[in-house]
């Protein structure tokens, strides 16, 4: 492939990555924030100790998000890694992923009529198999114990 085709391809990939990535990110943030406001009635907290005032059914709930990087984010991050510094483009990707994972976990808890999710933890996994230069595909996984008031 000649340098010119490579260059055109690069610019195209960057433009697509930027345009779609940016659009999707804005839309996603808007939706996350709205849903979070709704879901705040069902708190998810990281304490390991369940409340002791009531008897609860306990159930594992999970929220998993698999998200791909776009070329613009990848490219910007690889340039940034030459100089060091804050990787803004990855931060927003992971931020969205974590928040979406918690929302999915909460939705599962909601379907169990839970009133609290405690002991919430996060796991992030890179799915590209450690291939050098491959674009990132990440799984962000949140899990916790949903507490549903017991009627027994």
């Amino acid at each position: 492939m000649t340098a010119i085709t490579q260059f055109v391809l690069l610019v195209l990939l960057l433009a697509i990555g930027y345009a779609f990535g940016r659009m999707a990110e804005k839309k996603h943030y808007k939706r996350i924030i709205n849903e979070e406001k709704e879901m705040n009635v069902l708190p998810a907290i990281s304490t390991r100790l369940p409340p002791e005032n009531k008897i609860y059914e306990q159930q594992l709930v999970l929220g998993s998000v698999v998200v791909a990087n776009d070329y613009f984010k990848f490219f910007t991050a690889s340039l940034k890694s030459l100089f060091g510094g804050r990787l803004n483009t990855y931060e927003s990707l992971l931020d969205r992923g974590r928040r979406e994972a918690v929302l999915r976990m909460k939705r599962q808890a909601q379907s169990l009529n839970a009133e609290l999710v405690f002991n919430v933890k996060y796991v992030t996994t890179n799915l590209n198999g450690g291939q050098k230069g491959a674009m990132g595909v990440l799984e962000i996984f949140a899990y916790g114990t949903a507490l549903t008031p017991s009627h027994k």
Partner: peptide, 26 residues
């Protein structure tokens, strides 16, 4: 004890700044 989730303020864990100027400088 009362457990609650409060809507966090934006722009702490991630920046909502347009990444384009940063990209061009890089």
């Amino acid at each position: 004890m009362k457990y609650q989730n409060i809507q966090p303020s934006e722009g702490i864990n991630s920046s909502k700044k347009n990444p384009l100027p940063d990209f061009l400088v890089l």
